[in-house]
């Protein structure tokens, strides 16, 4: 009964070609059927059929409402999926602040051998003062690696690494993810503050030759010198 009724409605709708177009609804066989949005489904039905089967009309009304809601639900689902994706992206790229005793000691001493490169000590930039260091080592090779990162807020601080006064790389934005640079094992390595993104240029540098992290800050236009001496 219901199937016959649906068929008769579809036939009536297809015949009614001069109906004003306001809204479109896709039928199951992918055929576009024009339905005037100002009319209800019941107005659309042949009179005798609507009198005979008002329950069927209700079913069709519900189906029609579902079809109307479908694009909204689909787009809503995409929006929520994008929300979840952005949250995953934001939280996965934001490392948590290290609050262990080793991290607290590193903040006080400004030097640490136990923390890994990329350790974040502070949520916000704090001026911990800037300092030059002399590093005496027994490293055998001519070159060594250093890693530079922002140990506080990733706020757009820029630094440049110089060796004996000459830049070894272009100035770059320091982030929580360490940037690896190769420098000579003997000489003066300078880290110059290029741009303060706010709260001071806070950076940390780890030297492969002695496995030590130095937590430092460089004012804009000034630099910290690390003098590397081989024993």
């Amino acid at each position: 009964m219901n199937n016959n009724f649906k068929k008769s409605i579809q036939n009536a709708m297809n015949k009614n070609s001069n109906t004003p177009i306001f809204d479109t609804t896709k039928t199951n066989n992918n055929q576009e059927v024009q339905i005037p949005s100002s009319q209800t489904e019941e107005n659309f039905m042949p009179q005798e059929e609507s009198n005979l089967d008002s329950g069927g009309a209700q079913v069709i009304q519900k189906q029609s409402d579902k079809n109307k809601d479908k694009p909204l639900k689909v787009f809503g689902g995409i929006c929520v999926a994008l929300f979840v994706a952005t949250m995953v992206f934001i939280f996965s790229s934001t490392p948590s602040v290290n609050t262990t005793d080793a991290a607290k000691n590193a903040l006080t001493d400004k030097v640490s051998t136990s923390l890994a490169a990329g350790t974040v000590l502070l949520r916000k930039d704090e001026n911990i003062g800037h300092q030059d260091y002399t590093i005496t080592h027994k490293y055998n090779q001519n070159d060594t690696k250093i890693w530079v990162w922002d140990y506080a807020a990733e706020d757009g601080d820029y630094v440049q690494v110089l060796v004996n006064g000459a830049p070894v790389a272009e100035a770059f934005m320091i982030k929580h993810k360490p940037v690896e640079i190769t420098v000579p094992a003997v000489g003066e390595v300078q880290i110059k503050g290029i741009r303060d993104g706010g709260g001071g240029i806070t950076y940390a540098v780890r030297y492969d030759l002695n496995g030590t992290n130095y937590f430092n800050s460089a004012p804009e236009g000034e630099f910290n010198t690390y003098t590397l001496i081989k024993e």
Binding site: C79, V80, F89, I90
Partner: peptide, 16 residues
């Protein structure tokens, strides 16, 4: 990125 997330959440809720 934060705006994509915020808009996505509130528009998504309003539609779902």
């Amino acid at each position: 990125t934060a705006f994509i997330g915020i808009f996505g959440l509130f528009i998504g809720l309003s539609l779902l």
